[in-house]
Amino acid sequence: YETDHQDYCEVCQQGGEIILCDTCPRAYHMVCLDPDMEKAPEGKWSCPHCEKE
């Protein structure tokens, strides 16, 4: 199925295993987040940009 999420990391602009924000189209590698994540979040997750809003 098609999503509106970007298929690359917002921080480093590379693809790969990325996690998707449930609020906006941004996507991130877990290691590119500050602080980085050990494992993928369970349930709904909002990226740092959305958390600030």
Rank of each mutant, 00 (worst) to 15 (best):
P35E: 04
D4Y: 11
I19Y: 02
P48R: 13
M30Q: 04
L33A: 14
Y28K: 05
G15D: 14
E17Y: 10
A40M: 12
S46G: 05
E2K: 13
P35Q: 04
D34V: 09
Y28Q: 03
E42W: 02
K39L: 08
Q14M: 12
E10N: 07
C32R: 01
D4Q: 13
W45M: 14
H49V: 06
E10K: 10
E53V: 03
Y8K: 11
C9P: 01
Q14P: 01
H49L: 06
Q14Y: 04
E17F: 06
G16H: 08
E2Q: 15
H29C: 12
E17R: 08
E38I: 08
Y8T: 15
V11F: 15
D34Y: 08
C12A: 00
E42L: 09
Y1V: 15
T3R: 12
G43S: 09
P41E: 13
L33F: 12
C9E: 00
C21A: 00
Q14S: 05
V31T: 03
Q14I: 09
K52M: 03
D36P: 08
D36S: 15
G15Y: 02
P35F: 11
S46E: 10
C21M: 00
C24W: 00
E38F: 14
V11P: 05
C24K: 02
P41F: 12
H5N: 14
D4S: 08
I19L: 07
C32I: 00
C24T: 01
Q13N: 15
D4W: 07
D22E: 11
E10I: 15
C9I: 00
H29E: 00
L20A: 13
D7A: 09
P25M: 06
I19Q: 08
K52I: 02
E42D: 06
V11L: 14
C50W: 02
G15E: 07
H49N: 03
P48Q: 08
V11Q: 05
W45R: 07
T23N: 06
G16W: 05
I19D: 07
E38P: 07
E2Y: 15
Y28P: 01
T23L: 08
E38Q: 06
I19C: 05
C24V: 00
G16D: 15
H29K: 00
D7S: 12
R26E: 03
D7K: 09
E10Y: 14
T23S: 12
P48D: 07
Q13M: 14
P48H: 10
P25K: 04
L20M: 11
A27V: 09
